[in-house]
Computed example of a mutant assay.
Amino acid sequence: MDRLRRSATIAAAALAMLLLAPAAAQAQQTEYVALGDSYSSGSGAGSYTDACQRSTRAHPALLAAELGAEFTFVACGGATTADVLAEQVQALDAGTDLVTIGIGGNDIGWTDAVIACITPFQNCTPAIEEAERKATQELPARLDAVYTEIATRAPDAEVYVTGYPRLFAARNTCDALGSISIAEQVRMNQGADLLAGVIQAAAEDHGFTYVDVRDEFTGHEICSRTPWLHGFTLFDVPYHPNAAGQASGYYPALLGAL
């Protein structure tokens, strides 16, 4: 009789554990918030869900699916640091476990520099130099404001700051009907390296993890055999990662950092 009673007690305890398991798993679900600009929203990757060009193929969406996370996706195409502060950080709170953010390119007018370089018969060096000036003289304070707000609103979150890839292979003149020279491509890539250094320094000053994607995109730049970035195009978002760039460039770099 005692043996039967003990067996019944063990069985009841096991059943209780099974019934409680889903609730426990739900309580441990990662709360993930993705902030940033078009490189984070997935502009260029297709399969958009709204006017911000948030893509189901963007690396934050892929990561959320991998983690089974409770996902808040507020990254938006065209966003600046001011937009993050005004419209995105409100998604954070004390319960946020994980934050990713990629921001800064729009603050320095990087698109203007690209346009200048693909415009025939125009010297784009002044535009690149102006973007670099903003990157070194203006962007650090703007990033500091954003990162400080993230840390304040989500004090227990792990924060991963994603950078930008170099755009060009700098081996031929395939893009924009050959209007951007190899020398201009090299100069643009140098500007991308400078921007990466600025963002990395600011992130690490706040104890955040910087996710450098330049190695992942090496060999897959614009004008390479298998580009993971759109070049000059009227049919998609130019100078942004395509779906392969998000899935095979950004996503594994972020997973590696995690």
Rank of each mutant, 00 (worst) to 15 (best):
L229I: 15
A45Y: 07
D97Y: 14
G256C: 04
Q122F: 09
M188D: 02
I182T: 05
R3D: 09
S55P: 06
S7N: 14
Q200T: 08
V198M: 04
A196R: 15
R225A: 14
A91Q: 13
A244Q: 14
D83I: 11
T148P: 07
A79I: 00
T111P: 01
T56P: 01
T148W: 01
Y160N: 10
G256P: 01
Y164V: 06
D93R: 08
F121M: 11
D107N: 15
A247T: 02
S55N: 03
S248M: 10
E132C: 03
D236C: 00
E70D: 13
T81P: 09
E129I: 03
Y250S: 05
A27P: 10
Q185H: 10
V213Y: 05
T226A: 03
I150M: 10
S41Y: 05
A141N: 06
V186K: 12
A145P: 08
R57K: 13
V99H: 13
T226L: 05
A45Q: 09
N189K: 13
I101G: 10
D175H: 00
P120Y: 01
A24E: 05
S40D: 10
Q53I: 01
L35Y: 10
A14C: 11
E132A: 03
G105L: 02
N106W: 00
A79G: 01
A247Y: 06
E130S: 11
C117M: 11
A151E: 13
Q88W: 08
L67W: 05
T81F: 02
Y48M: 03
A192I: 07
L85Q: 11
H230V: 01
I101W: 00
N106I: 07
P241V: 05
R214M: 02
R54Q: 15
A127L: 01
R187P: 00
Q26Y: 07
E221P: 08
A69S: 12
T136S: 04
T125A: 09
Q200G: 03
D236V: 06
D175A: 03
L143Q: 12
K134M: 07
E204C: 08
A203R: 11
T9W: 09
L143Y: 09
D144N: 14
L139R: 07
A65V: 09
L18D: 02
P252D: 07
I128C: 05
L92N: 11
V146G: 10
A58H: 06
V237H: 12
Y239P: 07
I199V: 15
R214S: 04
R6P: 03
A170P: 12
Q137P: 02
E130C: 03
A257R: 13
I118G: 02
G109D: 12
E130W: 07
T148A: 12
A145D: 13
A14P: 04
D50S: 11
D97L: 11
S179M: 08
A145G: 05
V33Q: 04
R166P: 09
R142S: 08
A75P: 00
S40P: 09
R57V: 01
I10W: 05
S7H: 10
P126E: 04
G231R: 04
E149N: 11
A176L: 06
T80Q: 10
A8D: 03
V146K: 09
D97H: 15
R3C: 01
M1Q: 14
S55C: 04
